[in-house]
Simulated assay, not measured.
Amino acid sequence: MSTRRDTDDLRAHCTVDTDGRITFRLRLRSPGRPRLALVPRPKKNRPERPAHLLDLEPHGDDGEVRAVLAPRPELTEGRWDAYLLREPDAGRERLRPGLRDLRVLVDGTLRVGLPPVAVRVPYATKDGFLAVRAWLRTAHAEAGRLDLTDGAMTVRARLYGAELTDDAEVLLRLRGDRATVRGYRPRAEGNAFDFSVPFAELTAAAAGNQVWDAFLRPAADAPLVRIGRLLDDMADRKTVCVYPESAVGGAVLRPYYTVDNDLAVEVTAADRPR
């Protein structure tokens, strides 16, 4: 005997507009009073947080229903799994991704308004379900082109959510040791800036394998702003944006993006396995 679960194709199509609004569409044979639930994925050993619920309204005459995730209120930073609730008291059914129209995000032209900087990117999980990756930051430094030449890394970036001043400084901080930092004066034009990091300065700070995380301090005594790449269509760029290694002295260095799409530099001793 067939049921609604095996006759409905629980695939949600997504469209993102330039303001960050996401429209979800799917077809249901018996719509009822459905809602779309975005459930924040709990961190290890943490309880599940409340879901963000969206009403699914009829749209057209072919059984399609639609829900809109507006730019405000923002989703807290993390990964949000998408589910269907057919009725208010019904169990959750995991949604699979349909067509994801992310064209407005491809060239990094997402409109970033007043702080905080809120970014949401629909994506397919490794096990084939629909989720939304969300970032929510008071300010953000968006990394652009990254060049590796003559044993140094040069990065072009733009600051959002804060003002860049003459006292601005780029900091690379040794992960696990907040006291060990290397500072670099950015070259700025408005809120666009670039900076260069000689790799030899990172290899001299500590022995063995290490990771340096990149930050911007927009003004003297201002809070640190993470440098990363969030404003395009890529929810997970760690294994996609792979930069070549540079050998400096007895170490091998490689810039990379973390699981949160933040910029870091990995330093590996040449005589140690990587």
Rank of each mutant, 00 (worst) to 15 (best):
V181C: 13
W135Q: 06
P116D: 03
G161E: 11
D166S: 13
R175Y: 10
G176C: 08
A188S: 15
G176W: 07
D166N: 09
V121K: 12
A152D: 12
K126Y: 12
G176A: 08
D150K: 08
P122G: 09
A134M: 05
T138E: 15
R187H: 13
P115H: 08
L146K: 05
A134N: 04
V170M: 00
G144H: 07
D167N: 11
A179F: 09
R185W: 00
T180E: 14
F129Y: 15
V170P: 02
T125L: 04
R178W: 08
L130F: 05
R182A: 12
A162V: 10
T165H: 12
L172T: 06
T165K: 10
V181T: 15
W135L: 04
L159V: 02
A152V: 01
T125N: 08
D167R: 13
L171S: 11
R185S: 14
N191G: 00
L136H: 03
R158V: 13
V181D: 14
G190F: 09
R133A: 13
E189V: 12
A118R: 05
D177H: 12
T180N: 08
E163D: 15
V181S: 10
L174C: 07
G151S: 10
V117A: 06
Y184P: 02
T154P: 02
A192C: 05
A157H: 00
G113I: 06
A134D: 11
E142M: 05
A192N: 10
A192L: 09
L114H: 13
R175D: 14
A152Y: 01
V170A: 03
G113R: 00
P186L: 01
V121R: 13
A157E: 10
D127R: 12
M153K: 01
V132F: 07
R145F: 04
A124V: 11
R175T: 13
E189I: 09
V181K: 09
L146Y: 00
A168P: 05
G176F: 05
E163A: 13
Y184R: 00
G190V: 11
D167L: 09
R173P: 00
A152G: 12
D166M: 09
G190N: 07
R187F: 07
R133T: 03
Y123K: 02
T180V: 15
L146A: 11
E169K: 02
G128V: 12
T165C: 04
P115Y: 07
E142V: 01
L159I: 01
G161Q: 07
A192F: 03
R187M: 11
G190H: 10
V119S: 02
L148Y: 01
P186M: 06
Y184E: 02
P186Y: 05
E169S: 12
E142D: 04
G151C: 08
T180I: 14
R145S: 14
V121P: 06
A143L: 02
A143N: 01
P115L: 03
G161F: 09
G144M: 03
L174N: 10
A124D: 04
